[in-house]
C-alpha cells in the first residue's frame, strides 16, 4: 500500500508551549486512520499541519509526496477536509454551496449523485442557516468530497450530533472509504474510533502514545479482559491477588470485578470450582478501547 500522508517528527509550539512534540505517523492508501486523544492533546494542530493551514516549526509533512505549505494549491486538489467549528454564510443554499465549491476544482464529482448519497437531495434549496446539525455535517462532508480528493480529513465530525445522526455519519465514512478515498479521522469518541478505524494513533500531550489497530491497542493494555460476578460465598483477598496476569480487583456491593487476560479468567474459574463457590451473573467481556485509551494516557502521565 502506498503511503498517502507522511508525518515525520512534527513539532509545533504556541507561545513557547510545545503543542505537537515529535509526532510521526504514516497513513496508507485506502485506510481509515484515526487520531485519538484527549482534548488539547495536539490532534487538531497535527491535522492542520497536514492540511497546510499551519506551518510546522520542525519535522516534515508530506501529502501524496507534496509539502502542504509550499505546494498548497496542489495539495488542496488531492486533499478534502472538514473543519472543526466551521460554518457557511447562513443565507447560502445547499445547492449554491455545492456549485460554488465544485467550481474550485478541475475535476469535481457530479453534484446530484453526491447530494443523493449524503441524503441532501431534498435539501438543495434550503439555506445553510436552516439546516440541522446533522445536515450541516453532511454538507461539510459533501464539500470535502466534491473535489474528488484522494484523501479526506474529518475533524471531530460527529461532535454534537445525536446518536442516530452519528451512526448515519459512520456509515457515510465507511462508504467513502469503500470508494477508495483514504480517510484521516480525528475524534475523541472511542466507540467511533473502534467501529471505523483500521489503525489508530493515540496522541497525548503532543506525542504518539501508541499506534496500532483498535484490537491491538486493546490487547496491549493491561486489563484487556474484564470478569465480574457475585460469589455465593466470600472469596479471600489473597486468593484473588494471587491470580495470574491480574491488572485490577474491585469489590462493590458484594460483586467482584477483575481485569486481566484469558489466563486470569481460567484461573478464576478454577479457583471458584475448588472452593465450590458459585459465580452468579458471571460476565466476561473484552475491555473496550475506552479502557485501553485510559490505560495508555495514564501511563504517559505517570
Amino acid at each position: 500500500m502506498p503511503t498517502v500522508i507522511e508525518v515525520t517528527d512534527l513539532r509545533k509550539s504556541y507561545g513557547g508551549r510545545a503543542v505537537v512534540d515529535g509526532v510521526s505517523l504514516a497513513v496508507e492508501e485506502g485506510e481509515i486512520f484515526g487520531i485519538l486523544g484527549p482534548n488539547g492533546a495536539g490532534k487538531t494542530t497535527t491535522v492542520e499541519c497536514v492540511e497546510g493551514l499551519r506551518a510546522p516549526d520542525g519535522g516534515r509533512v508530506r501529502v501524496t509526496g507534496l509539502d502542504p505549505v509550499a505546494d498548497h494549491e496542489k495539495v488542496s486538489r488531492v486533499l478534502g477536509a472538514q473543519l472543526q467549528q466551521s460554518e457557511l454564510p447562513p443565507k447560502l443554499t445547499v445547492r449554491e454551496a455545492l456549485e460554488l465549491y465544485a467550481s474550485f476544482y478541475p475535476d469535481p464529482l457530479d453534484r446530484a449523485p453526491l447530494a443523493e448519497r449524503l441524503g441532501l437531495a431534498g435539501k438543495l434549496a434550503t439555506r445553510f442557516g436552516k439546516l440541522s446539525g446533522g445536515q450541516r455535517q453532511r454538507l461539510f462532508i459533501a464539500l470535502a468530497l466534491i473535489g474528488n480528493p484522494r484523501v479526506v480529513v474529518l475533524d471531530e465530525l460527529t461532535t454534537g450530533l445525536d446518536p442516530r445522526a452519528r451512526r448515519d455519519t459512520w456509515e457515510l465514512i465507511e462508504d467513502v472509504r469503500d470508494r477508495g478515498v483514504t480517510v484521516l479521522l480525528v475524534t475523541h469518541f472511542m466507540e467511533e474510533a473502534q467501529r471505523l478505524c483500521d489503525r489508530i494513533a493515540v496522541i497525548d500531550k503532543g506525542r504518539v502514545a501508541a499506534l496500532d489497530t483498535p484490537a491491538g491497542l486493546i490487547r496491549r493494555s493491561a486489563g484487556a479482559t474484564v470478569i465480574s460476578f457475585t460469589p455465593s460465598a466470600p472469596v479471600a483477598d489473597h486468593d484473588l491477588t494471587a491470580l495470574p496476569d491480574l491488572a485490577s480487583v474491585e469489590r462493590k456491593d458484594g460483586r467482584i470485578t477483575l481485569s486481566g487476560t484469558d489466563e486470569t479468567v481460567n484461573a478464576v474459574i478454577t479457583l471458584l470450582a475448588r472452593h465450590r463457590i458459585t459465580a452468579h451473573q458471571l460476565r466476561v467481556v473484552d475491555a473496550t478501547l475506552d479502557d485501553a485509551f485510559l490505560d495508555l494516557t495514564k501511563e504517559e502521565a505517570a
Binding site: 492540511e51 497546510g52 493551514l53 494549491e73 488542496s76 486538489r77 486533499l79 478534502g80 477536509a81 473543519l83 467549528q85 466551521s86 460554518e87 457557511l88 454564510p89 465549491y101 474550485f104 476544482y105 478541475p106 464539500l143 473535489g147
Partner: peptide
C-alpha cells in the same frame, strides 16, 4: 462575518 464563521478559513483548504 465570513471570518467569524470560518468561511475564509474553509476557503484556504480549496485551490
Amino acid at each position: 462575518g465570513h471570518r467569524e464563521r470560518g468561511v475564509l478559513r474553509r476557503m484556504r483548504l480549496t485551490p
